[in-house]
Design a protein around this nucleic acid. Structure first.
Length: 477
RNA sequence: CGGGGUGUAGCGUAGCCUGGAUAAUCGCGCCUGGUUUGGGACCAGGAGAUCAUAAGUUCAAAUCUUAUCACCCCGACCA
C-alpha cells in the first residue's frame, strides 16, 4: 500500500482526518471505536493480570525533568512546553502572548509519564508490604515530531502506559515476561498481527531503561517495519532518581525495581497497513466496530420484521450488527462502501431470501457466499465464520511476513537486497555501536531487534567477527 | 530542521509555463422532482469557490515575484 492510498483509505473510511496542526489528527467515530475495542480487550487482559487503571496529570513540572536529566541523561527533545498563561490583543487586533503572564516554572506536556509516576511511587512505597504496585493509564501524550504520518507517527497520540514497581530484580523481570504474554495475546488473538520480538540494541533502548523489549511487524506491500509495542525494564534507574526505597523483611532500606510498557494508536495504522486489499480495509473481526452489516434490498414491511428478528438474534450473541435502511443508494454502492470499511460480514436479504427463509452472507476476506437458513441458529454459523476470518487473516499476514523475511550472511548481500526489497533481514551480528551507525547510514535501515542468541558461534555479517547474536534489520516508518 | 513537490467547491481535478474580457474546467458528492434498486443507476433542474494566507509587480493576477502557513515525498529525529 503506498502512502497516498493509505491516507485516502483513512479518509474514505471515516477513520480519521487532519486537524489544523501538523501531525495532530482527529480520530473520527469509526476510527475511535476501533481504538475503544482495543482498549476494552486490553483492559480485560490488564484486570486479569492485576493491573489497576488510574490517571496521571498531563502537565509535568520542569523540576522533575531536571532530576531525571541529571541522573539518567534523558533530554526530552520533542516536547511541547507551556510557558505562559495569558493572551492579550495588540494594535493589529491580533492575539499575542502576554509576557507578564510568564509562569514561574515551565510545564511540559507529558511525552511519557515515568517522571510523575516515580515521583508518586516515592509517596506510596514505604514497606515491602506495599509492593508490587501495578498500574496502567490510558491517555494522550505529545511528542512534536518533525515528520508525521497518520497513526504511525503523530505529534499527539493516544496510548496505554503500564508501570510497575517491584521488590526484587527477579520479580521485575518476571513482570516483563508477563507483559510480553499480554502483548502477544493482544496482537495475535485479537488484531491478527504477526510479529517478531526481541531486545533493542543499546542505541535504540529507552535512555532510562536497562533494556527495551520490542514487538515489530512489517507492512503488507512495502515491507516497512512498524514498532507495535515496547516494554522497558527500568531496573532501579528511576527509583534511584526519585529515591524510591522500601524497608524489606529484615528492616533494610533498599531500592525498588520497575518496568514500563506501552501500545498506542499506532496499532490502528499497523492494522490498516497489514489488513487491506484492492477493495480497501479488512478489519480483524474482534475489533471491528461493525462485525455484520445487514443490507435489505427492498423496502418491505415483512422484510423489515425479518431483519429485526435476525438483528436481535445476533445482538444476543454479542455480535455487533447494523442495518443499512437507506434506499436512496443502490445495493452495489453499499457493497463497495462496506467492503472499503472492512466490515467482516455482509448479510443480504431480498425477495429470494424472504421466500426461501434464508439470508445471503458474504465474507469480506474471501468474498465467498453462503446461504444461511434463518430458522437454523444462524448466529452459530456467523460466529464460526467470524472466527474463520480471524484465523485466515492472521495466517495470511504471517505468511506474508515470512515471505518478506530473508537471511543474509554478508553486508554486501544485505545492501543489495534491501535496496530492492524492504522486509525483515535476519543476520548474525557482533555488537558494536559504531558498526550499527555505519549500517544505518549506508543502508538507511536499522536493527529492529536482537531476536536470539544461538549456541554456536557465527561470523558477523558486517565485521566477520565471531558472535552468537542474531538480529533482524529493516527499514522503518 | 535540510532538500524536492503541492495547495483551485465537501472530495478529486483542468487552467498556471506564455497574465486579459461575466473570475474558473470536468468527475464524484450534496439539494429538488421523477424513474430505478441482486456488485459503484438514469433523466431533468439546482446550490456550492474571497483560486491557502499576506504583500508586491501590472491598466489587468488563480497565472509572475517575495514572505508566511499547511500538507505530501526523501533525509536527520522518533512510539
Amino acid at each position: 500500500m503506498d502512502d497516498k492510498k493509505y491516507i485516502n483509505l483513512i479518509k474514505s473510511t471515516n477513520i480519521a482526518d487532519y486537524s489544523d496542526i501538523k501531525g495532530i489528527i482527529i480520530i473520527k467515530p469509526y476510527g475511535y471505536s476501533i481504538w475503544e475495542n482495543i482498549k476494552n480487550i486490553f483492559n480485560k487482559i490488564l484486570i486479569k493480570n492485576n493491573y489497576n487503571n488510574l490517571y496521571f496529570p498531563l502537565l509535568i513540572s520542569k523540576k522533575l525533568f531536571e532530576l531525571e536529566n541529571k541522573k539518567l541523561n534523558i533530554i526530552p527533545k520533542e516536547c511541547a512546553i507551556v510557558t505562559h498563561s495569558k493572551f492579550k490583543i495588540n494594535y493589529n487586533n491580533k492575539l499575542i502572548i502576554d509576557k507578564k503572564s510568564k509562569l514561574n516554572q515551565e510545564l511540559i506536556i507529558r511525552p511519557t509519564s515515568e517522571t510523575i509516576v516515580w515521583y508518586t511511587f516515592k509517596k506510596w512505597i514505604e514497606s515491602y508490604r506495599n509492593l508490587p504496585i501495578k498500574i496502567n493509564q490510558w491517555c494522550n501524550v505529545v511528542r512534536l515530531e518533525m515528520r508525521t504520518k497518520f497513526f504511525i507517527r503523530n505529534s499527539e497520540f493516544l496510548w496505554q502506559e503500564g508501570h510497575s514497581a517491584h521488590s526484587s530484580k527477579n520479580e521485575a523481570l518476571l513482570e516483563v515476561k508477563k507483559v510480553k504474554l499480554m502483548y502477544k495475546k493482544l496482537l495475535k488473538n485479537y488484531l491478527c498481527i504477526p510479529f517478531i520480538s526481541g531486545y533493542k540494541t543499546r542505541k535504540e533502548t529507552f535512555p532510562g531503561a536497562k533494556f527495551t523489549y520490542t514487538f515489530e511487524t512489517i507492512t503488507k506491500e512495502k515491507g516497512k517495519s512498524i514498532q507495535l509495542a515496547t516494554i522497558h525494564y527500568l531496573s532501579n534507574n528511576f527509583s534511584k532518581v526519585f529515591n524510591v526505597k522500601y524497608t524489606n523483611e529484615i528492616g533494610k532500606k533498599v531500592y525498588t525495581w520497575g518496568i514500563s510498557w506501552g501500545i498506542s494508536t499506532r496499532l490502528i495504522g499497523a492494522i490498516i497497513m497489514i489488513h487491506n486489499d484492492k477493495k480497501g480495509l479488512i478489519l480483524p473481526p474482534k475489533i471491528a466496530p461493525i462485525q455484520v452489516i445487514i443490507i435489505p434490498l427492498i423496502n418491505n414491511y415483512i422484510l423489515k420484521k425479518r431483519i429485526f428478528f435476525i438483528k436481535n438474534i445476533l445482538i444476543k450473541s454479542n455480535i455487533s450488527v447494523e442495518i443499512d435502511n437507506n434506499f436512496n443508494i443502490t445495493p452495489g454502492k453499499k457493497f463497495y462502501k462496506y467492503d472499503n470499511m472492512g466490515i467482516p460480514i455482509k448479510l443480504i436479504i431480498g425477495i429470494n431470501e424472504l421466500k426461501n427463509n434464508t439470508v445471503e452472507l458474504i465474507r469480506r476476506d474471501t468474498f465467498k457466499k453462503y446461504y444461511l437458513d434463518i430458522n437454523n441458529n444462524i448466529y452459530i454459523k456467523i460466529l464460526k465464520i467470524l472466527s474463520n476470518i480471524h484465523k485466515r487473516m492472521y495466517i495470511f499476514a504471517k505468511i506474508e511476513m515470512k515471505r518478506k523475511t530473508y537471511f543474509v550472511k554478508s553486508f554486501k548481500n544485505f545492501k543489495k537486497k534491501i535496496n530492492r526489497n524492504y522486509g525483515f533481514y535476519s543476520a548474525y551480528w557482533y555488537k558494536d555501536s559504531n558498526n550499527e551507525s555505519n549500517i544505518q547510514s549506508i543502508t538507511k535501515s536499522t536493527i529492529r531487534c536482537i531476536t536470539s542468541k544461538s549456541k554456536k558461534q557465527h561470523k558477523c555479517f558486517y565485521s566477520n567477527k565471531f558472535t552468537n547474536i542474531k538480529i533482524i534489520l529493516g527499514k522503518s516508518y
